[in-house]
Design a protein around this nucleic acid. Structure first.
Lengths: 345, 345
DNA sequence: CTGAAAGCGCTTACAG
DNA sequence: CTGAAAGCGCTTACAG
């Protein structure tokens, strides 16, 4: 149970009667080393509970074997309000990293203002994964700067045509259209949209465009009075519905740009005496865990976080190895529950 | 916009007309260096966008400036089922680390079977934070091994008298007692307990003991038929209530050892035609985000995750610096909502 | 207050 | 297939 004077590759070399270089090679499974020698060295290493010193090996080989995950925190000091959708992403990214033999450093984006310097120049990480919903217009110049600096990064978010860097995202347009087609099929005609509909929030904007497309296909007009800005919080959803009601708008369905917004919307409707889904149907987006536990359970669109995490990590690793990569969308998957009145199978 | 041939401390030394050692000192704010020289060096470093190479400095100084957070994953392959309580903890731990100038490595416990070797011996992290609910009996020998190896670690969980290593946890006993006293004050008399009540799950066990204490103080007997094992999932809560009902037990309240269990319990009760809280009151534990959005909103006990995260990080840092530390409990805070029938203020 | 030098523990040309 | 040597970029005694 040694706990200090950790074994080094020289100790192993000594015991194995070989040079330290051979130990180094053997431990990384180099085919240059004679198989028997290699096995012997590995056995000794295991016996001594030896682990390669990460700092030494990183320093010498000039890469860290580490990826940084930078979370964009919603503008709230309360940790419990971190969008639960990202927990799921975090889980799958963690797993995908481990599988690729990389370590994962986690931090909040706002804790640093020069990601390139703080992660790549310091050799803390070989590349960066950016996660979170923020104002994209402000964000874009940061992305451009990263590209200009040659930073290795990948971002979760809307996949747009002329975008700096690599993005992986959900097919928000398709998800939005599927959701609204579902509402229309259930004979809803006045569908409100709760969420930003501008290039500041391209993910929401794409969902909004899917909403518009579905309405247009059904020969319905988009009523601008039924669209209200809302950030991704339950509170924002609550307030948006109240504002709609206070403005005297009538509607029979609410498409919330995220599940958190939808949860708030349902609470506001209930508080104001409306029945969901009888009078107003509600749908969300993300399929966060609590969507299934809402009353009524929320119809929404699932983003496959497992696939997303894997794709983010794989894409980033490809850029690290200078392999061709491109931005990609994963499909959005309609999850029908009871919040829009259709019986669950 | 240099992106290769990164500046080193020698480049800075050259520009500043001093030795590299002086640069190293100045950059770490050493008072040994003349203030003017120091300022000049720091200005040059900023201008060159220079960052100390973390691997080099770690290798030389033999510490990593990094903490590892090891999450115990619920026995499920689905990332979305990670207990949301831990998301909140993750957030506060991330913040506390950043504030202390440490980086945070995140992984799942089961991805390694020798934490000491994989994190400390490899110099990936100076210490380890263990987070998650697992079978404590199996766990204990791992903790003992860590202690024997001199691993620097702190664990979130039950704080027990003769426990290996350092633990930070909630006052589960008090939380459980408060919850049950609240139920009793509302005239509930047959309170079921959903959760393990054995030393395999000491956090649940302590909550159970709080439950027993409250009943005893009210002169009520503990009915073993009303206690059912359940792990921390919605599914487990659902099944436990069904089992209770199928066994023909009657009860007017359910104390669920976690909010996830409580959500499942409420769903089962509703499905079986019981009204919550009119016929059966339900309380949980954790105050996860969705507890407030349940129908009815769930009465529970909040564990202050911000405080918990800070305490975990601070305690671990103290062990790293060989300062005296001890296990500690943070208070549990009763959060009254509507699931047990009392009007919310 | 400053500098020259050693050395942290590896990986990787280079030579054989 | 193996070894001797250089060197990754710092920090830190040591000497002045």
């Amino acid at each position: 149970m040694r706990n200090k004077g950790k074994a080094t590759s020289f100790d192993i070399a000594h015991r194995a009667g070989v040079s330290q270089s051979t130990v180094s090679r053997a431990l990384r499974g180099s085919p240059l080393v004679n198989k028997e020698t290699r096995d012997r060295i590995q056995a000794i290493a295991r016996e001594l509970n030896y682990k390669v010193d990460k700092n030494a090996s990183n320093l010498r080989s000039q890469h860290s074997g580490t990826l940084a995950l930078l979370l964009f925190e919603d503008p709230t000091p309360d940790d419990s309000l971190i969008n639960p959708f990202f927990l799921s992403m975090l889980g799958s990214i963690t797993r995908a990293c481990a599988q690729a033999g990389y370590d994962l450093l986690v931090s909040f984006q706002q804790l640093s203002d020069d990601w390139h310097a703080d992660y790549e120049d310091s050799n803390k990480a070989d590349g960066i994964i950016l996660l979170g919903y923020g104002d994209y217009v402000a964000y874009q110049s940061k992305l451009e700067q990263l590209v200009a600096q040659g930073t290795h990064f990948v971002r979760w978010g809307a996949v747009l045509p002329e975008q700096p860097g690599l993005s992986i995202g959900c097919d928000n347009f398709q998800g939005g259209r599927d959701l609204v087609e579902h509402l229309l099929a259930l004979s809803r005609r006045r569908v409100a949209f709760l969420g930003h509909a501008s290039n500041h929030y391209p993910e929401f904007f794409e969902r909004y465009q899917g909403y518009c497309a579905a309405l247009a296909a059904a020969g319905l007009k988009v009523d601008p009075a039924l669209q209200l800005d809302a950030i991704t919080t339950e509170q924002a959803g609550y307030e948006a519905v109240c504002a709609l009601l206070d403005a005297g708008q009538s509607f029979d369905a609410v498409f919330s740009a995220s599940d958190l917004i939808a949860l708030g919307a349902m609470r506001a409707l209930t508080d104001r005496g409306f029945k969901v889904p009888e009078q107003v149907a509600v749908v969300g987006f993300d399929d966060i865990h609590m969507a299934a536990f809402a009353t009524p359970p929320l119809t929404t669109v699932r983003q496959n976080t497992k696939r997303a995490g894997e794709l983010l990590v794989q894409s980033l690793l490809r850029t690290l190895h200078n392999l061709p990569v491109q931005s990609a969308k994963i499909p959005a998957e309609l999850v029908i529950r009871r919040s829009c009145g259709q019986a669950v199978p």
